[in-house]
Design a protein around this nucleic acid. Sequence first.
RNA 1: GCCCGAGUGGCGCAACCGGCUGACGCGGCGGACUCAAAAUCCGUUGUCCGCAAGGACAUGUGGGUUCGAAUCCCACCUCGGGCACCA
Length: 798
Amino acid sequence: MDEAYDPQAVEKKWQARWRDEGTYNVDNDDPRPSFYVLSMYPYPSGPAHMGHVRNYTFGDLIVRHRTMQGHAVLSPFGFDSFGLPAENAAIKTGVHPRVFTEQRIEELKSSVQAIGAVYDWRREVRSHEPSYIKWNQYIFLRMLEAGLAYRRNAPVNWCPGCQTVLANEQVLADGTCERSGDVVFKRDLEQWFFKITDYADELLADLDGLEWPERVKTMQRNWIGRSEGAEFDLAVDGDPDTKVKVFTTRPDTSFGMTYAVLAPEHPLVPALTTPDRQAEVAAFVERVGKESEIERMSSEGALEKRGVFTGSHVVNPFNGKPVPVYLADYVLMGYGTGAIMAVPAEDQRDWDFATAYGLPIVRTVQPPEGWEGEAYTGDGPKINSEWLDGITDVPTAKAQAIEWLEQQGIGEGRVNYRLRDWLVSRQRFWGCPIPVVYCPDHGIVPVPEDQLPVLAPDDVEFRPTGESPLKFHEGFLHTTCPVCGGPAVRESDTMDTFVDSSWYFFRYCDPWNEDAPFDQAAAAKWMPVDQYIGGIEHAILHLLYARFYTKALADLGVGPKDVREPFKRLFTQGMIRLGGAKMSKSKGNLVAPEEIFETQGADALRLAHLFVSPPGDDVDWEAFGIEGCFRFLKRVWRLSLGETVENPDVDKAAHALIVRVSDEFDRWSYNTAVASLMEFVNLLNKQGATAFAVDTLLLLLAPMTPHIAGELWERRHGTDIHKERWPEADPELAKPDSVTLVVQVNGKVRDRFEVPPDIGADDAERLALSSARVQEHLGGNEPRKVIVRPPNLVNVVA
RNA sequence: GCCCGAGUGGCGCAACCGGCUGACGCGGCGGACUCAAAAUCCGUUGUCCGCAAGGACAUGUGGGUUCGAAUCCCACCUCGGGCACCA
């Protein structure tokens, strides 16, 4: 009994057992009801940090809890093992990215196991392995075949110092290259895209059915950015065959159009520029072309410098009046039609521009009485709008304007999205090669399926040029055309690593499959993921791409037809800070989980993560009550191995505890669940521990602190607690014998009574009025009113 | 600027449906054990007044609804996050 709690010994023993026994392996024909729990697969960056620990603690708790509840729980793990850091390391040290990456994987894997988190390791997936690359490429080709993957010329970030394209993430906030410090500018290049915009509407609509945090759904809605409006033609004044197409969300305001604006890159700019405006327009277009995205998007800067008059006019089809055509840097070629009608009275930005350039302002919506603002964007009756006048609300006017455009045959109702197609090609080595070749005679030719995977060669040289070594590897580059057998060139770009992470959760269902990315029936058994867990930083990119992929796979016949959303429930955990700052390697303020494993142990650390705050909140490491949790576990240890007593009151409390903690687990209220267990241990220390109480305590602790729970249960019973069922309370015993009746006078607590839970209203009132303290506060007067809420409260109103 | 979210002891937080504010833990204070320390255990701990019994005041600020508000409504302040020329 005097043996002290030794977390290191206990944790090592149980981790080895789970690994060797495969306790949490689960087969695809498991008859129990299935449940899929998944933590986002990590980029392997070395040993786990506190963020990982937090993530995997919640995931593991759910895996173990659901298993105890009788589910077959799929809990796989893998690695997002392609990516830039490994390539940068290769350039610096000459070590091949694979060697570098696999070392990091082993480090991360071993510290994930040291947390005590359990997975079916037979299903491990690593995105850099040929078996994954093959099916990643296969899906790409299916996308290509279906027209969902395409190649086109697009403006991308170009760094002149590195002589290469950069990902958006590599461009710093000030518009410079993170590596060379050069100013990045836009350059047109042939790139591969996925047609995610085909799914814009479905991606938006299906958000409604997901049990995700509202803010993540809102972020996705904003990102997709659906707007309804109309598209119509403006004929050029004096040249009616040339038309400028504009998009607007407010066709009802068209009578108030006093000018039109084109993006500087708009193809009609040369045709619309009159000879006398030539020099000024050319200078403006050149200047905007040289501006970084940051400068251009900045709302600072004098409006007078942000536009230029072309010299031409277009005709407003609504009233036949000509209006001047300007160029402005704030009109973007990539959205809508790259041209707008400007209605300064109902759009603040147009108002500002019109004011700066002395252009007229005509209101078409009557602002409310006392309106003192400038542009009015609210609802109201139409004015100055001929046949729209008299309509009292904007939506009706909008619909009529669209109807008119369609009747006239010059425009139509139209929906636009902010969402752009997904640029997936990267000029990098350490990624999944794009499996196509370019033939002089046959153009883009997919690599035949039986030649997959296309693997990058190992004998490459990593040079600090910023360019992919694949581009210089003659043996890789030169191949033959699968169609004609003639000489052809391989694509040397690789895929964005977000492609890898867009379907790995399907592969986990059937990672052994050699004939397909995964078997449909296996995927249908587990998918969608019942509980997905990860960081909020993936709120848009990964989660949107994975949703797109799931829909596309279903439509391609690769995925199960009915699985159109990958993640039914999503939980995003908070960030870990230290002294207010975000915890990160670069800031050097990392607390290594190893330090805790070697002292208080993984169980104490897990418990501290659960206890410190509600799971979704950001937490500060300084707030962690790791000592208190360690102390608590030591008490549990002593209590469980000590003498037990008989005490029906304590057994009763244990039944109540089961009800309470089960409810707290269901509500993700893990911090209060820990508090409940601590309170219970305090009770056992005072009133003595019964055998049932200790067993209950250990069962409830098992998902949270699995090592110590396993050890103590084994010492008490010789069996494995992790094969036990989650306890169930006897509802009769869980009911309290008495409750506290609070007696208030005028809403202030003046007395308390212990009463039976089924006390009647009359008895409660009588008891309350019998209180000397209540009578004192009544001062001899009759109460004006008595509110009775048995069995908890009586409020006497004096 | 717009859209979310949050403000409760010295600190992390709890109070689930409008009904005992501060559970649980950290920290502090006092004590036991010890030559001493660590570990462990016990007590105490919102503020103010009072010897005490007790009382008053307390959930960012100001109003409101209600027998009763941390909780609901209105206005404002502060902090955190997201979006930000998207026509």
